[in-house]
């Protein structure tokens, strides 16, 4: 049990909750997207904290690979969401 794991893991939980709250409540779509991305970042922090084994010890590579996959999936979801938002705005202006 290491202090660093607690510090990064617990702040990851906090950031995930803050991001989720904004994603559900904010009126602006861009803020909602940033909120979803921060929720993901918080969960990644928890995973990387669990993988840490202390200075001088090799960390667990499996959560690292999971987080790498997660980062790429998050950016593709963000790109698709932005394209959807753009189309939505265009439709509403053309009405």
């Amino acid at each position: 049990m290491l202090t660093a794991q607690w510090l990064y893991g617990m702040s990851g939980c906090l950031i995930a909750a803050l991001g989720l709250r904004t994603a559900l409540l904010h009126a602006c779509l861009l803020h909602r997207l940033i909120g979803i991305n921060l929720t993901g970042a918080g969960v990644f922090m928890v995973l990387i904290a669990v993988a840490y084994r202390g200075a001088g010890m090799p960390p667990d590579p499996v959560p690292h690979a999971l987080v790498l996959t997660g980062i790429v999936v998050a950016v593709s979801a963000t790109a698709l969401a932005l394209a959807l938002a753009r189309r939505l705005t265009a439709e509403q202006i053309n009405d």
Binding site: A41, A51, I71, V75
Partner: peptide, 19 residues
């Protein structure tokens, strides 16, 4: 700092940069 340099590179390039 948490000894995850692969993830750090991806976060800097994709998570911060391209997103």
């Amino acid at each position: 700092r948490l000894l995850a340099p692969d993830v750090a590179l991806a976060e800097a390039a994709i998570g911060a940069g391209l997103a």
